[in-house]
């Protein structure tokens, strides 16, 4: 489909954008007494469906489902939707391998997926039927399962799968005609690399480990990032400040939650220009990503409220909204 074929869909999305939560809504929810008040506020705004009443997780799942259905209704390019679902898909593989190797059932660890749900992932791992997986997942699934069975090293298994996910996203992103998708994937890979570097620094990982875990991307030099993260905190801050990620360094100095918030805000910044775009599928993808960010933020608020976090602590964790 050409850019002009999305005019109808973009106009519908413009109306839908009015229903997205804004920073005032988020601030209001962060100031509420408990998770029940937040849930009630969301239900008043039309969140959830008839079967989800009062159940936070069901409300969030219903919202994700509604958004996905809207994307399909608007005939969003399926390869774009598939690309955006890679993190969930690889997460399911990770959860499947752990369940397969430990025999500990944890249904909630899986994301709902039309094809690669818990049952299908477990069947594939049981039968070692890797051909049933998408081509970009097969090698990683086989290697990760083998590592997990031989060494029981869950971290090594995660590194293999996370790296494969980033590689697959990067390769698929480069093939996309839509500029927003290409930019979003590039930003996602760069932000994830920085996250991995930060976590590795805190757990004292070697440069060799980092080279294996980091995915090459155009926004930063991962070899230099690996060297910096393997040295000490100051080197990592210097690297970030001199490679266009000064805000990441400042957020990291502030607190771990400020850094996590920066990671998500950076991705929202990538999609924000789509608010003024009238054609192409960019605004539709931006809406989808904004909705996912919104659901993630609401989940953070609900969890914070359920665990008795103060208003200030909750506010520190919430993300910037698209609208």
């Amino acid at each position: 489909m050409g850019d002009l074929d999305y005019i109808y869909a973009v106009a519908r999305i413009r109306v839908k954008e009015k229903s997205l939560l804004n920073d005032t809504d988020i601030s209001q929810m962060a100031g509420m007494q408990d998770d029940k008040s937040v849930l009630s506020y969301l239900e008043d705004k039309g969140w959830g469906d008839s079967s989800s009443s009062g159940d936070a997780e069901k409300v969030l799942l219903a919202e994700e489902k509604k958004t996905l259905e809207l994307m399909k209704e608007l005939k969003l390019d399926l390869s774009a939707l598939e690309l955006l679902s890679y993190p969930n898909l690889y997460h399911n593989l990770k959860a499947g391998i752990k369940e397969h190797c430990t025999s500990e059932t944890n249904e909630q660890a899986f994301y709902p997926h039309e094809k690669y749900n818990r049952e299908e992932i477990l069947r594939i791992l049981q039968d070692q039927d890797y051909k049933a997986l998408p081509a970009h997942m097969r090698d990683a699934a086989e290697r990760a399962l083998s590592v997990m069975l031989e060494t029981r090293d869950g971290q090594k298994c995660d590194v293999i799968i996370d790296r494969a996910c980033l590689d697959a996203m990067s390769a698929a992103g480069k093939k996309q005609k839509n500029r927003l998708l290409r930019d979003y994937v590039e930003s996602t890979v760069a932000v994830t690399d920085i996250k991995i570097a930060v976590r590795s620094l805190k757990t004292g990982k070697s440069a060799a480990f980092l080279k294996e875990a980091l995915c090459p991307c155009d926004l930063l030099d991962v070899r230099l990032l690996a060297v910096a993260a393997a040295e000490h905190e100051e080197s990592l801050h210097t690297f970030l400040e001199t490679h266009g990620f000064r805000e990441a360094s400042e957020a990291l100095k502030e607190s771990p939650s400020a850094f996590e918030r920066w990671c998500d805000n950076r991705l929202i910044e990538t999609i924000r220009p789509q608010k003024t775009n009238s054609v192409s599928m960019g605004p539709i993808i931006a809406f989808y990503l904004a909705k996912l960010n919104e659901i993630k933020t609401v989940r953070i608020i609900l969890t914070a409220k359920a665990n008795g976090f103060s208003e200030e602590e909750t506010r520190q964790r919430v993300r910037e909204m698209y609208v």
Partner: peptide, 14 residues
Amino acid sequence: GIAGQAAAGVVSED
């Protein structure tokens, strides 16, 4: 024609 497509999109929601 293109304005009509956009108009239909808006009216279908509002």
